[in-house]
Nucleic acid binder design. Structure first.
Lengths: 209, 209
DNA sequence: GACAGCTTACCAAGCAGTAAGTAGAGTCGG
DNA sequence: CCGACTCTACTTACTGCTTGGTAAGCTGTC
């Protein structure tokens, strides 16, 4: 029916892309297979062909995100702590710019009690990886003498992670909060610039091949 | 605390109580009228008698919460900043203890895009009130010479608000995070006690049906 | 007899999920 | 080079269940 402009064979990937957008804007319980098939221009059952159950789709979404996040962090192996922090902030910003999405950890922890067990397990792994990354940045910054803050790196990383997750959600209601938040986190880390910066390098998550 | 527990006559209030628990554990899209009527022991249409549309119920839930929050803050008119901060932390803890609920602001901002417009408006008002309160605590503490932190009170309040909202969600996955977070926030405010208080013990994750 | 506070009995729409059929491309024996 | 077979990637058509929501009737109280 619809004249294909795209080469066939990537339907599965396009399903995941659409589902990811829907997940991060509306939540896992906030979208249906119809919403995906409608946007993709296929029938409902086509989605079930690739992902028999919605749980299968949800798990694959998190696993794909974990792989992407892993590559994102590995790509920063040689960066200093300040650059990693900027990358973290830019990652957060990129969610906001994309239709005021929130971080996957924010959706998954908020909807946690309503998720199937298999998704809960996968979500817990992802959240732990994000938390550990935030802690690693805080630790690296202090060890390198770049960050200066009271308390442990574990605790400071937890504050950064929690604040950015919460701030990304609240930015939907208060657009200025996210910028304020990033600036204050830098202040608390002892590296605040003279003015809240606007044009950081575009470091976003690489798209899966 | 509600003084009345009489079985009949306050169905409306009991509906709101059950709905509030469901909202804070499962989200607005995560519960149905059947879930309320089932727990209350009435028929589905009885809920519709009191709240014709689910939107009506949602708005009343937020408005009731705003009234309660206003009384909560007004009751602290004479308290110093440290006590207000403790009250804020205790409020956060009380959510966690009640079946790992999250703060209403966390649910409402995360589900924001899926909420009816009238609920969005009400949610925005509530979130702004919470943010303002957090900022007021930060400002009072600094003005009184109790808190010591870099940056503006606006920014510090935003960090506290965002971090506690995010932390309450993440506590569902990582039980120790909330305690760590509160301690580090006090550290960043320059009022950390000698040892982190270990208030809550880790319960095993209950899977909700 | 008026009214609040329900119940009974519905409804249409939307949900995830399934079974069966099919178009097209690739494979393979003869 | 052809027909038969096979596999992928769907579509068509459907199911059973849940959802928010409604209309009408019933019952106890003032």
């Amino acid at each position: 029916m619809a004249p294909d402009t795209d080469p066939r064979g990537d339907t599965r990937k396009r399903i995941l892309d659409i589902a990811e957008t829907l997940l991060l804007t509306r939540g896992f319980n906030g979208f249906s297979y119809q919403a995906i098939s409608g946007e993709l221009g296929v029938k409902n059952a086509a989605i079930h062909y690739h992902f028999p159950h919605k749980t299968d789709l949800g798990i694959e979404l998190i696993q794909r995100y974990r792989r992407r996040f892993r590559r994102f962090t590995e790509a920063q192996a040689d960066l200093d702590a300040a650059s990693r922090l900027d990358a973290y902030f830019e990652l957060t910003d990129s969610y906001y710019r994309r239709h005021r999405q929130v971080c996957p950890s924010g959706i998954l922890s908020t909807e946690f009690h309503t998720l199937p067990c298999a998704m809960q397990d996968e979500a817990a792994l992802f959240i732990e990886e994000m938390r550990a990354w935030s802690v690693a940045i805080a630790r690296q910054g202090r060890d390198g003498g770049v960050f200066h803050y009271a308390g442990s790196a574990e605790a400071m990383g937890a504050v950064m992670f929690s604040a950015l997750q919460g701030g990304l959600q609240l930015a939907r209601v208060d657009a200025e909060l996210l910028g304020t938040l990033k600036y204050q986190l830098k202040t608390l880390l002892g590296i605040a610039p003279a003015l809240p910066e606007r044009g950081q390098q575009a470091l976003s998550l690489p798209v899966e091949g």
